Simulated scan of single mutants.
Amino acid sequence: MDVRVFGHVSPDPFLSAADVFTTEYDLSLPVRVHVRDDPEIRTWAAHYRSYHVLNISRQAATSVMARELALHEYSHMARFEEEHPSHVQSIEEALYLGLTGKAVEQRKLTHCYQIANHMKDIYADDITLSLAPATKLVAFLESQLAKAIANRPQPSPHPDSKPTVPGPDPEITAVNAAFALALLERHEIAATDHRLYDLAHAAADDAPTVDLENFKEKFRSLNEDPTPSEYRKSLVDVTRAYATNTGAPAAD
């Protein structure tokens, strides 16, 4: 596995992640790690004809999560190379199929892309969590959810006014919480009394139109090896449920 790091950071986390990854998997194409100055980018993978790119913020590249983040992105690259439906399905096509003729708020449409990424993450993490302990990932999910809840919009004293303090949208925070719980249960990596469950229910209380349990189940039960049509249906169902505010994914 060919990994080259561009940027003034230690290559050790990326090479260490590659060593772990190649115990069970490999990539046909080389990986170029590009360190970005934008702290908001964290990580994302891009795929080209002759190589993959792992984009990572300098902040993330020098954090204690650097190796785990790299391993996660290598897993995305592996899914892309194997043409797993979750990584080749057009999100735009799924949204068109699911939302044509429906009135959808722009913010919800934007959130649908995040939900689609959660579904891709489920399949990437099926690889990641088979290779490395989940301790850091669970702590990361917990801290991110706690931060989102603590920074949620504060209501205005006037019912018709906007929140006095803006913050993360409670509805997508609740879906993010469902995703976190789905990972815990799909891989049996934490007990049901873990603090993430309390945080998730707090997030759900802030978003009564989002059915936490149903979204969790939809993520948790994704077929490990779906056909393209099966995956497309799952993606259409979950994005339609969120965008149209039904509170739960459509029944199979």
Rank of each mutant, 00 (worst) to 15 (best):
I189L: 14
Y25P: 04
A78M: 03
A207I: 03
S234W: 06
H72P: 02
E92W: 08
D169T: 06
D237G: 00
A134D: 14
Y123S: 07
R220Q: 13
P13L: 00
V236P: 00
Q59N: 06
D19C: 03
G101T: 11
R220W: 05
Y25M: 13
F140T: 13
P166E: 08
R58C: 05
A134K: 06
N176V: 01
A18Y: 03
A190F: 04
P30F: 04
T135H: 03
A200K: 11
V20M: 07
T246E: 12
E224R: 15
I172K: 10
D38G: 04
N151F: 05
H187M: 10
N117Y: 10
P170G: 12
L181N: 01
N223V: 15
S50A: 12
G7T: 04
S63M: 02
E73T: 05
A177T: 09
D2H: 13
D205M: 09
A60Y: 01
S156W: 11
P39M: 08
K218E: 10
N223T: 14
E142P: 06
V210W: 14
S161C: 15
H111D: 15
L97H: 12
P30D: 10
K233E: 15
E83G: 02
V88N: 12
G98H: 02
D193A: 11
Y242N: 01
E40V: 09
N223L: 11
Q114L: 13
H201C: 07
V20P: 07
G101I: 09
L95G: 11
H72S: 08
V165F: 06
I172Q: 09
K147S: 13
D206I: 02
P30M: 08
G247D: 03
Y231F: 15
R152S: 14
T23K: 15
M77R: 00
S86M: 13
P226C: 03
P166F: 03
Y74G: 00
P155F: 08
G101V: 13
H76W: 03
H76A: 04
H8I: 08
A243S: 08
V5E: 00
A94Y: 05
E93C: 09
L97I: 07
A94L: 04
A202V: 09
V20R: 15
L69E: 03
F219K: 02
S130Y: 07
T209V: 15
E24G: 07
L212H: 06
F219M: 01
T209G: 02
S229H: 12
L54M: 14
H72Y: 05
K136V: 03
L109W: 10
